[in-house]
Design a protein around this nucleic acid. Structure first.
Lengths: 337, 337
DNA sequence: CTGTTAGCGCCTTCAA
DNA sequence: TTGAAGGCGCTAACAG
């Protein structure tokens, strides 16, 4: 257990220098002779010396670390964003710490504790579908740690946010179905409390309205995004006396389950029922029929959010901005519609 | 920038106690009066007090944190393992820090630096397909930080490892094809340097041998696991004068690309060519035709690896064990074969 | 260019 | 049961 690490003192002793000189050499200060610097660097390298970030953080009150909290890893959506975040963060000299909340409020709270304990300099978060109380996130603000939301945002907090135009994306998706001749378009929506879900629903309604198609509440189903239940709703929709000829799903996992259920019911896609999703998950292009969906600019989301966070971290607390960046989506038409 | 946090001293002042008493109350020491403890705890809670892990780590030389390094997030394989690791680690009182190496040796090295700088107490890793030099990982051993490999392991390091029986999995997959009547079975393999790839190849060969089917080197293709190239190999195989009637792919992403290429070539699966993959990715059940594949016990892998690491962390350096745990795979027969 | 000094926030002896 | 003092590894003023 006596895991003793090599310290600056060790190097100082070995090279017969003072600790401060060694420290300066290590941190790339100019005021060190070329010779000394090289000696120090070489000794450090060959002795596995590693600066102790804890000691440094203790002094500087900074960790050069960005915390990322996402609800899940299973769809390709968040992983792709994370990769972009890491890309940008690394280039800016920040490390990243990833936590996943598993779509659970409780875990999300625990995640924030980890971030707090690790003293991250900033947080990037997309909340769970359960999160309705935001006290655990407001702590960051109080402590002067900037937080930036992306996709699943918190409306009551006045901080930077990156979202896509869900309304617009849904609108175009549904209009696409209408232009394809579909008249009875159902919508499997997420929980009303989730902002993105509400916005997609509005886009859906707006498209119908624009084309003078009456909104039939019977065709709108809210659910908690637990995909296992999707087949029940689809079967219900298909058994309706006047069954829908198209289904717009709130996201791709839902759309995929929808497709499976329709196929199992022996109906053709898009012949009998067309399907459109939202997000352009990795899987969507692989299933049969390939899913028409609204693509989100994942890279852009990751990049913009990270940049916003970095900007915020550089600012003084009382100069924090709180702008909302809305990115455009893109309809990808494949064979399911 | 004056992000000043609440410290023990603040609490001590507010409650008119000594720092050591507050510290003891916070750490749950017994030698504190019930009254004092409660007062401290309450004040701490309502003042957003958060123990500074950096200060503690500086003293204890421990962080209660497990580092996880995985090559990628895009398939569902590693995310699933990570979720299980977090589950087990959390229950044992450890935090987790996740890094993804992006299948790049360079990034993997950078990741280890992050882990070292954060002084994780232990590391769980699955190496990239590029990693051939292991110096960056041996550092952990030298520093007394236990490391446990899973799936993509390093043969030259004498540490705990969790793998699945790739040989056996491949053997059964190929035998399954043989029993289905296939005679010319091709294998799209990974790089020979990757151990799992080599073992799957051996399993493939063994199955053929057992059933007296000659091994045709022409039907074995090694590649670097960059899936974009798969279609080229598949087209090549299909254009062979005596084309294969089945293809065993080294992993699911490869198998999926294989299916796409075969379908594009206008051939039927499994009628003209059967396909079998390895890993049972989330996508595999959704594509058309659903992929027959060798399932890995993801949860088990995560659980066992984490448990091994925790055991190791509790042991003294000179009592470290180095056993290899081999888990069984399971063939999942679907419609692609 | 180099050395000295004083902490960062906390835990841990030791003494009371 | 409580308090005081020392130090974890490092950086940031100060001095030379």
């Amino acid at each position: 257990m006596k895991r003793r690490q090599v310290t600056i003192i060790d190097i100082a002793k070995a090279l017969n220098l003072s600790k401060s000189t060694v420290s300066r050499a290590l941190t790339g200060h100019k005021s060190v002779s070329e010779q000394t610097r090289e000696a120090v660097l070489e000794y450090a390298a060959q002795s596995d010396y590693q600066r102790n970030m804890h000691a440094i953080s203790l002094i500087t009150h900074k960790t050069n670390t960005i915390g990322i909290i996402v609800p899940e890893f299973m769809s390709s959506f968040f992983p792709q964003i994370i990769m972009e975040v890491q890309e940008v963060a690394t280039r800016a000299g920040y490390n990243t710490v990833i936590c996943q909340s598993n779509e659970t409020y409780e875990t999300e709270v625990a995640n924030t504790k980890v971030m707090l304990a690790n003293q991250v300099d900033g947080v990037l978060i997309s909340i769970t579908r359960e999160t309705k109380n935001f006290d655990h996130l407001k702590v960051f603000q109080r402590k002067g740690i900037p937080i930036v939301f992306f996709n699943r945002v918190c409306d009551e907090m006045n901080v930077p946010k990156v979202i896509v135009d869900d309304y617009d994306g849904a609108f175009h998706a549904v209009e696409h179905l209408i232009l394809r001749g579909h008249k009875r378009i159902a919508h499997i929506a997420g929980p009303p409390s989730l902002v993105i879900s509400a916005r997609r629903l509005n886009g859906y309604k707006a498209a119908l309205k624009k084309h003078d198609i009456p909104i039939d509440e019977e065709l709108i189903i809210h659910y908690d995004l637990n995909v296992e239940k999707v087949k029940i709703y689809v079967n219900h929709l298909l058994s309706l006396p006047n069954r829908p000829d198209a289904i717009f799903a709130v996201n791709d996992p839902t759309a995929i389950e929808t497709i499976l259920a329709i196929k199992k019911a022996g109906l053709r896609i898009p012949g009998d029922v067309a399907v459109v999703g939202f997000s352009n998950d990795f899987v969507s292009g692989l299933i049969e029929p390939a899913l028409t969906t609204v693509a989100q600019p994942v890279k852009e989301i990751g990049k913009v959010a990270t940049q916003m966070l970095i900007d915020q971290m550089k600012r003084d607390v009382n100069e924090w901005k709180s702008m909302i960046k809305v990115l455009k989506t893109q309809l990808i038409v494949r064979s399911s519609s």
